[in-house]
């Protein structure tokens, strides 16, 4: 398994996509953090003031998990590229037990997710600490529940990476997987979570579960407890990865 994971890292690093998506994640984090701090005094905002623990947790959580969709896309591309470029044949010849290939990809992209999340946490910290200090807002990285938030952010990004791998194994078609993933995250989920009457159900969707896990507080939406959010997201992840692995084993590689 160690060799398979090393091989997956080889594949990932052989092209530059990981770097562009990492830079993209960090840029989104920087943009979000800057806007959030710049307009934090706006009374109409859905987030709590940055002087509160909930407000700070939300800032760090949202900034850390900015990497989630991009990591999911990277992971989905990583596995569907095998089918698109037909390297699946070579890969499954080297490792006829396809479940092991998918396991190696899950571990690899899980680790990549951790790396992305850490990079985004570094960005939000680098921007928020001096800026909030200049605004005379008291911020301690060790306090206000921020360690839990950061751990939740890392877990969330990692789980999205695993969902990306599972979805790619399930669908195989690269464009369909990536477009489907993005449409779901940015269109379907956005519509559903904006209907308050559906709130009791939509809190179990991946995005709101992600928000719950990382400890985001919004004034216009209710989330599950962090542990419940983590459990819900993990359940999605396991179901999709299991279905993807099952089908990868059954399907003919033609």
């Amino acid at each position: 398994m160690r060799r398979l994971i090393a091989g997956e890292f080889h594949k990932l690093l052989a092209t530059r996509l990981w770097l562009w998506l990492l830079l993209g994640s960090m840029a989104i984090t920087a943009l979000y953090t800057s806007l959030q701090i710049a307009f934090s005094d706006d009374p109409d905002t859905w987030t709590l003031p940055l002087s509160t623990a909930d407000g700070q947790q939300t800032l760090f959580a949202a900034a850390a998990s900015a990497a989630s969709p991009l990591v999911a896309v990277l992971a989905a591309i990583g596995i569907t590229a095998e089918y698109r470029h037909r390297t699946a044949t070579t890969t499954f010849l080297a490792t006829p037990h396809r479940g092991r290939v998918i396991a190696a990809k899950l571990i690899t992209y899980g680790l990549v997710g951790i790396g992305y999340a850490l990079a985004c946490i570094a960005v939000v910290t680098a921007i928020a600490v001096p800026w909030l200090s200049a605004k005379n807002v008291d911020l301690s990285l060790a306090g206000n529940g921020l360690p839990a938030t950061m751990a939740g952010g890392i877990a969330a990004v990692t789980l999205y990476a695993l969902i990306g791998v599972g979805l790619g194994a399930l669908l195989r078609e690269q464009v369909a997987t990536v477009v489907g993933l993005l449409i779901y995250l940015f269109v379907i989920e956005a519509i559903l979570t904006n209907i308050p009457a559906l709130d009791a159900w939509t809190r179990y969707l991946p995005g709101p579960a992600d928000n719950a896990l990382t400890g985001i507080t919004l004034t216009n939406q209710q989330f599950l407890q962090p542990w419940q959010g983590g459990l819900v997201l993990t359940t999605y992840c396991v179901l999709i990865a299991a279905a993807g692995t099952y089908l990868a084993n059954r399907r003919d590689v033609t």
Partner: peptide, 27 residues
């Protein structure tokens, strides 16, 4: 050793990178 299709490569990888990937996987 099997050759099943001649077009089964990631276009952005170098030939050497392709071979090194499968060398790594096979140890």
């Amino acid at each position: 050793g099997a050759v099943l299709e001649a077009t089964a490569f990631h276009p952005a990888r170098t030939g050497r990178a392709h071979l090194r990937i499968y060398s790594t996987i096979n140890g």
